[in-house]
Amino acid sequence: MALISLLLLAALLPQLGHSASVHVGIVNGKVAQSRPYMVSLQVRTQHFCGGFLVSEQFVMTAAHCKYKGKPWTDVTAVIGAHNLKTNSFQRIQLMHSYSHPDFKMDPKYPENDIMLLKLAKPVVNKKIRIPEKDEDFKENITCSIAGWGRIGNNGPTNDVLLEADVTMLSSKNCKNWWNFNNILCTDSHHGGFCAGDSGGPLVCNNTAVGVIAFYEKTCINPPRPYGYTKISAFLPWIKKIMGK
């Protein structure tokens, strides 16, 4: 019920006049190549958010994906799936969730939207690297995103993992569009993400640099760029949590 409520909230946000919609399938995508680090977060086998392995025992995702209606014992992480209707993947229980302490579930302020999930057992040789230091990006770099979300505002969800190329905006340009801290932006007129893709990675040069977080009003050609949480801005917190 809580998951349904969150999805309804996301659908209502534009009418309520908020600046960004959270809980956001891959738009203009294609069937993905091998991405063993991808994670589908599920409740009773139903996908609701993406994520990605950043170590043998930790999944990174968006903090707004936290499923408040049920204890996290009801949430499982499906690791390395391509088609969610097959059984060629690992399903692992979660031990603990760590949302960033400064995150607020407020679509007006989608900052600090990052969470780490500790798995009940380790997964070997499937992680993706994350940045080692804080860094900015040049305009027009081609990166990629992937997920099992909707392919449009009212489109169906996907059982098969899709991916799309996206074009990075510079930090300055991103700040001009969204006056938030510690975010990254990609152009809104080509590939993008939609409901169900939240928490997945923004990948540049085989490195996860961002977490899929928010868009404005519509997931197809939104009026402002797609927004991501900038991973490198949270490295001290990430290292602290992963040391537990």
Score class of each variant (00 low, 15 high):
Gln46Leu: 08
Phe48Ser: 00
Phe48His: 01
Cys49Gln: 04
Leu53Tyr: 05
Val54Pro: 01
Val54Asp: 00
Val54Ala: 00
Ser55Tyr: 07
Ser55Phe: 11
Val59Ala: 05
Met60Ser: 02
Thr61Arg: 00
Thr61Cys: 09
Ala62Leu: 07
Cys65Tyr: 00
Lys66Gln: 15
Lys68Arg: 10
Lys68Cys: 03
Lys70His: 09
Lys70Ser: 07
Pro71Gln: 08
Trp72His: 14
Trp72Thr: 11
Thr73Asp: 14
Asp74Leu: 03
Val75Gly: 02
Thr76Gly: 02
Ala77Leu: 03
Val78Trp: 03
Asn83Leu: 06
Lys85Glu: 04
Thr86Cys: 02
Ser88Phe: 10
Phe89Ile: 07
Gln90Arg: 11
Arg91Lys: 12
Arg91Ala: 07
Ile92Pro: 00
Leu94Lys: 08
Met95Leu: 14
His96Gln: 15
Ser97Phe: 11
Ser97Ile: 07
Ser97Leu: 06
His100Trp: 13
Asp102Gly: 12
Asp102Pro: 08
Phe103Pro: 05
Met105Tyr: 15
Met105Cys: 13
Asp106Ile: 11
Tyr109Phe: 11
Asp113Gly: 05
Asp113His: 03
Ile114Phe: 04
Leu117Thr: 05
Lys118Asp: 04
Ala120His: 05
Lys121Phe: 09
Lys121Gln: 12
Lys121Ala: 13
Val123Arg: 01
Val123Thr: 02
Asn125Thr: 05
Lys127Leu: 11
Ile128Pro: 01
Arg129Ala: 15
Arg129Cys: 15
Ile130Tyr: 01
Glu132Lys: 15
Lys133Leu: 04
Asp136Met: 12
Phe137Ile: 09
Lys138Glu: 14
Glu139Leu: 13
Asn140Met: 14
Asn140Asp: 15
Thr142Asn: 09
